[in-house]
Design a protein around this nucleic acid. Sequence first.
DNA 1: TAAATGACAAGTG
DNA 2: CCACTTGCCATTT
Length: 108
Amino acid sequence: MTPFTESVIRIIKSIPTGKVMTYGQIAKLAGNSRGARQVVHILHSMSEKYELPWHRVINSKGEISIKDEASRFEQITLLLNEGIEFDLYERIDLEVYQYHPPSNFLFK
DNA sequence: TAAATGACAAGTG
DNA sequence: CCACTTGCCATTT
């Protein structure tokens, strides 16, 4: 497992209930500002094994990126249950709900 | 080995 | 804010 992957997992696991982070934000914090798509692969392949709160990861526009209807509905439901609100276009206000981890937490 | 793919992002108009 | 383009890169085909 690469250092990048380890960091990504730690970051995702640190997202508090009721907050979200974006793919690009996570990739950048993990050390690769251009690694957003790798974050996608990690979520796909390791969410279950590492019990990642995959539903708290959304795209930079504040939208749910999943196309599959069932999975999409599941993610929205999980977020609603955590108190996150969506506008009428199913978008989340990042100004309100985006999580910004402390800059030192990777080294703790 | 090459081409396509994807739960993305930033820049431009 | 929207639509479209370009850049990305590991994984899959």
